[in-house]
């Protein structure tokens, strides 16, 4: 249950923070979420999943509303095989940042609790 809440919290905070601030504030969202957890490895995992899914959904929403083939062209620019590959890699980047930040949050919580 706690993990689910953490997962949702990272997603929601991450979305809101990057709406008003720079994109890397998703790291702050991951960190805050991580504070709720006890194990840094589950922090890493939950954080990763939250960031990955947040970015994948957000990007999916933006590409779905569009009629442009730019995602395919941008994929070519980065020598990727398809727009799906670019979306996955983007989401992977988002997930990695929130995952690492959540692990940092968990370690922080543990460090000050002792």
């Amino acid at each position: 249950m706690k993990k689910l809440i953490t997962f949702l919290l990272i997603g929601i905070i991450g979305f809101l923070l990057t709406l008003i601030g720079p994109w890397y504030l998703i790291a702050l969202a991951g960190f805050c979420g991580g504070l709720l957890l006890k194990n840094q490895w589950s922090g890493l995992l939950i954080g990763f999943l939250a960031g990955f899914i947040l970015w994948a959904i957000h990007i999916g929403f933006l590409t779905g509303a569009s009629e442009s083939d730019l995602p395919t062209r941008m994929a070519q620019l980065f020598t990727l095989p398809s727009d799906t590959a670019l979306i996955l890699i983007s989401a992977l980047i988002g997930g990695t940042i929130t995952g690492l930040a959540a692990a940092a949050g968990t370690s922080f919580a543990k460090a000050i609790k002792r």
Binding site: H58, L62, P71, G94
Partner: peptide, 26 residues
């Protein structure tokens, strides 16, 4: 990811859904 490295542009500013090129899709 927030800064250009060599020939690569700042990736974070390009692929993140909140600031990247995705939001320029029309």
């Amino acid at each position: 990811l927030n800064n250009p490295i060599g020939q690569l542009p700042a990736i974070g500013k390009i692929v993140s859904p909140s600031h990247g090129f995705w939001r320029l899709l029309e």
